[in-house]
Design a protein around this nucleic acid. Structure first.
Lengths: 333, 333
DNA sequence: TTGTACGCGTTATCAT
DNA sequence: ATGATAACGCGTACAA
């Protein structure tokens, strides 16, 4: 690989002149500039960004650590991150440990080791806290998305899950529903707990009955929610509304309800959470009402916050919270 | 951010000793080793990988350029790339230009600028050829997956689309189907053309009728294929088998056929290509027969080839071709 | 306009 | 066992 010295030698000039040409700076005679540009072209010369970053103490690159790149839930987030990085003139790199913590910690080491100016990490799983603490300790220029770890003094992008769950539940109550239940998403995630809390609070505030079978525990997939709802419909009083902690389990709920012969939303109103994967299901189920999570905007905000922090390294950590938006579709009219 | 000099100063030793400790090398007294390790720990010190890579001329990192990260089609490929990189002890970074060519070229510049040892690019869209040529010119350590550009002297990972299409078509013929048609995927991609050619060749070899309405042109999505098939079923002789150039359009074909009252596979046998997104559709349609593309293995092979090339920089380019595998499910018994 | 010299943070070589 | 020094490729004062 050609270096700046090679180019300088071939052009019979100093490296300084070549550097000036590369960075479009003044102080080079037109003839020399032309000659240098030609030689650069001939050699397919690309400046070594390592050396450049080393001397400038600036990489112009943002690193993103995901727990898994292979999940369509992240598409909007990734798009938001990419668009924002692009518009700010930053490169953005993605890496994931494929759910393996050791690998992800290795990537944090790598990304904090000089090749990026800052790092963004996403997740709300309690198991991820180790990663967030490790990251926060290593780099002041980092942003956590969806995690509200109090002992990490980094910037944070949050979704107000409590408020979103409250809003959804409140809507069902005001609609006149009497027997409202909640099917949780995975309780190993902070979002699961927060959404449950929002549901409970709304039910209490409106003096709605809250019994032992008002809450069914499921996860982020369809199956468990389906089974839980099946069981629930076989025993006890029939619910007439259900707030589900995520969209995937909401489809499980819908399936169980439809198989049990319930009409949607007449017999049972359903509201999910997240508003992901809208297209693949829309021939199987009535379109799902849900609390839309603005993942694209959250990604954009994460990049903005990070860049702001890099330019004001002494400012206090910022927490920016987003609200989920109630999107009413067929399952809750 | 602390540097190796900071650590050395605090420990009252030279940078050499700190470096030895960092790299687990002999030649440090136990007391010094202990002291240095403590100070490293205290300071959350991480060696600057830029400086390290600069002096070692080795980054231990592979870069991947995708045209789009937000596509579930790539999940298996990404997993294969990650697993292989991990098992070879390499970091692997993903970036994408979100379909914007200028951005992707920028990333090629960035990745070839010293921060990676080699680069993997995926794609078979004819529009991508510019990118591949650019990459091949800039870096000898690069691997193209799915592209067979003859003027790029890089290693290549290919799928034998022609043979796969031939196999699928042949299977339909031997099954006794008489009126076989082909619905193409997007013809802006080399794979679309190759699969079409395989279909035609098989039909010719077996003296099957090949008329103007034996081929319907669609793309990588469900809608066009659905419309095309609807039109086709309304006019002309009814086909009794259909080989489709990808799975998504195959679902469009199935939908048109089922809405027209055809029984699957009795009236119409269908074989797709790729074997992606199996789960989301399995309640809507009978499970789809398809030519499985071994994307995971192709990703693994890409990493292996790249690492091999980096260790034998003078060897000739290697082309490794994979075969698609016929997976028979309900739509073609 | 042009070139010299230094530093970025690390590892390797060669002394001591 | 320990440390001084050069080198990786680049940008930039400063001098000429």
């Amino acid at each position: 690989m050609a270096t700046i010295s090679d180019i300088a030698r071939q052009a019979n000039v100093s490296r300084t002149l070549v550097s000036r040409v590369l960075n479009n700076k003044a102080g080079v005679s037109p003839e020399n500039r032309k000659k240098i540009l030609e030689i650069i072209e001939e050699n397919h010369y690309v400046p070594n960004s390592l050396a450049k970053s080393l001397v400038l103490q600036k990489t112009n690159t943002i690193g993103v650590v995901m727990d898994d790149l292979c999940n369509s839930f992240f598409f909007k987030l990734i798009a938001g991150l990419q668009d924002a990085a692009e518009s700010h003139g930053y490169n953005i790199l993605f890496c994931s440990g494929q759910k393996d913590m050791a690998t992800r910690l290795k990537y944090v080491d790598y990304l904090t080791g000089g090749c990026t100016d800052g790092i963004i990490a996403y997740g709300s799983c309690f198991d991820d806290n180790e990663l967030f603490r490790y990251l926060a300790a290593k780099s002041a220029n980092s942003v956590l998305i969806e995690s509200n770890l109090s002992d990490c003094a980094t910037d944070k992008i949050l979704l107000d899950n409590f408020h979103g769950a409250y809003t959804a539940t409140e809507h069902l109550i005001r609609q006149g529903r009497r027997h409202i239940i909640h099917v949780t998403c995975d309780m190993n995630y902070a979002v699961g707990l927060e959404r449950l809390n929002g549901f409970v609070q709304a039910m209490r505030d409106y003096k709605m009955p809250l019994g032992p079978d008002s809450i069914l525990y499921a996860d982020h997939f369809e199956k468990i929610a389906y089974q839980q709802m099946q069981k629930r419909l076989a025993h006890g009083t029939r619910p007439d509304a259900c707030f589900v902690g995520a969209d995937k389990p909401a489809f499980g709920v819908l399936r169980a309800a439809m198989e049990a012969g319930l009409s949607i939303p007449g017999d049972l109103a359903v509201i999910g959470f997240d508003d992901d994967e809208p297209d693949s299901k829309d021939m199987l189920f009535p379109p799902l009402s849900t609390m839309r999570q603005p993942l694209y905007e959250m990604g954009q905000a994460g990049v903005s916050l990070l860049i702001d922090k890099m330019n004001h390294s002494d400012r206090e950590p910022v927490v920016k919270s987003f609200d989920a938006e109630l999107v009413l579709r067929e399952t809750c009219k």
